[in-house]
């Protein structure tokens, strides 16, 4: 069990709700951004589990739905700023796809705050920590996500 997971579990044991966030970070920008936040020793909540993907455009809606199904309280997709994509147009494609996913989640009645997208460049460690802070703040009042979570008991 990694350090961050241990902290979350500890907080859960103390009774306070700690949301679990699955963060799909693009390899070239956001992942490096989160690294920068780490090496710069910025303080931000440890609720996000980062998953590095080659490009935000490679995030299939399937990943997002599957994360919710496996019990994520929030899902974040983060990539390079528009125009900065390593693969030239990956984030343009992501923007379209993610827009559809977001609209659909809202349509069936899942709280819109549970799903978020951001652009974080490799130099924006501070922005990454803010994105996570804001996300956790917004998720706490919503409580655990039970609408899509599969019952594995």
């Amino acid at each position: 069990m990694s350090h961050s997971q241990a902290e979350v579990t500890q907080a859960e044991a103390s009774g306070e709700f700690e949301p679990r966030i699955v963060a799909f970070l693009c390899k070239w920008c956001s992942s490096a951004g989160s690294d920068l936040a780490g090496v710069s020793r910025m303080q931000y909540p440890s609720n996000a589990t980062p998953i590095t993907v080659p490009c935000s455009g490679s995030v299939s809606p399937m990943y997002i739905l599957s994360a919710f199904k496996k019990g994520a309280d929030g899902v974040l997709v983060s990539g390079c700023h528009i125009g900065d994509c390593h693969y030239i147009e990956g984030n343009f494609l992501a923007r379209r796809k993610i827009h559809l996913v977001k609209e659909l989640l809202g349509f069936v009645g899942i709280e819109p705050d549970r799903f978020r997208m951001s652009w974080v460049s490799a130099a924006e460690g501070a922005k990454y920590s803010n994105v996570i802070k804001d996300f956790v703040e917004d998720l706490k009042p919503l409580g655990p996500q039970n609408k899509m979570k599969a019952d594995r008991s």
């Binding site: 199904k69 659909l104 899509m148 979570k149």
Partner: peptide, 19 residues
């Protein structure tokens, strides 16, 4: 997606289908 017809699986199936 599992094949069991439970609500979370059904939701994932239908949302994937429509996407």
């Amino acid at each position: 997606i599992e094949r069991s017809a439970t609500r979370p699986e059904n939701m994932t199936y239908h949302m994937t289908r429509v996407l």
